[in-house]
């Protein structure tokens, strides 16, 4: 069930990577900070679940736009891959530090959706897990519709194939970059809310955790491919659940990175990522 949420985070990475060919290392931290702000506000004012959810989303979008302006702004900011990545690393530290200040102790209560559970025969199923899964899948479907059917999605895909061409055809590339990050923030915010709801708690490690899961899921599925990101997320979720069930919690991360290691050896671009990987190689050659 967590797989769908992994997929959402991976999508956030893939969206940015697909369009800009750059990795946003501060993504996980942006989700941590947005969640921390929402938790903080809840501790002061005691908000409803819905308000919690909305504040998380809003801050996630704002922080991601901030990251875009600081590290990835097209034609205005640092142009290369390396400067952007290093800048996003710095922002990662900055956001993490802010979040640590907001939720100073290790663990805080996160107010999310709780729906109880049902028993079908011998199976014991948490309804909120099902609900999370349904929401995450719907979000992905919605994203797919936006990307494939809307004018905005069309332009995003055009820019992801060749930003320069989209630029001279008249696309306002800088506002497109902001939109991509805002959308990534929205997806990530939703994923963070679902995951934190499932855990009912948040720790300062959440940002790092998101970055790792998202990156691993994206690399599994195929670098920069949106469908690959979904696939990677679902595989990662299933794999973790399976290992947890069969081998126990201590093997979970081991299995995750083991599988990633294998995939990277067998198919370096990820499962669906042949093309994008070529692009990176091309870019690296030019650099």
């Amino acid at each position: 069930m967590l797989g769908a949420s992994y997929a959402l985070i991976a999508l956030g990475f893939a969206l940015v990577f697909g369009i800009m060919k750059k990795i946003n290392l501060a993504y996980g931290s942006s989700l941590l900070l947005a969640a921390s702000i929402s938790v903080c506000l809840n501790e002061i004012f005691v908000l409803s679940i819905f308000v919690n959810f909305v504040t998380l989303l809003i801050f996630s979008v704002i922080i991601n736009i901030y990251i875009e302006r600081m590290c990835f702004a097209w034609h205005t900011g640092p142009a290369g891959i390396l400067p952007s990545m290093i800048a996003s690393f710095a922002i990662w530290m900055q956001l993490d530090e802010l979040a640590f200040r907001l939720i100073p102790d290790r663990t805080h209560f996160f107010k999310g959706i709780e729906l109880g559970s049902i028993e079908i025969g011998q199976l014991f199923i948490k309804i909120d897990a099902l609900f999370h899964f349904a929401v995450a899948i719907s979000a992905m479907f919605l994203l797919y519709l936006i990307m494939m059917k809307s004018k905005f999605g069309l332009l995003m895909r055009a820019a992801s194939e060749n930003a320069n061409t989209a630029w001279f055809l008249g696309a306002r590339i800088s506002s497109l970059g902001i939109s991509a990050f805002a959308l990534a923030g929205l997806l990530g915010g939703l994923a963070a809310f679902l995951i934190l709801s499932a855990n009912s708690q948040i720790t300062p490690m959440f940002g790092m955790w998101c970055t790792f899961k998202g990156l691993v899921a994206m690399m599994l599925g195929g670098v920069g491919s949106l469908i690959g990101a979904v696939l990677g997320g679902l595989i990662l979720g299933l794999l973790e659940a399976f290992v947890l069930f069969k081998l126990g919690v201590e093997f979970r991360e081991l299995a995750t990175f083991g599988v990633l290691f294998l995939i990277l050896i067998i198919k370096p671009g990820g499962l669906l990522g042949g093309k994008s990987f070529m692009l990176i190689q091309e870019i690296e050659e030019r650099v």
Binding site: R157, T165, L169, G170, A171
Partner: peptide
């Protein structure tokens, strides 16, 4: 582009992963 100047670039630079129709729509964006 709004003023009415359009570029047909060297090497064509169409969007290979988009359909012909979508390529044309981007031109009219």
């Amino acid at each position: 582009v709004k003023k009415g100047i359009a570029l047909v670039p060297e090497n064509r630079l169409i969007f290979p992963e988009m359909t012909v129709r979508e390529n044309l729509i981007v031109g009219a964006y």
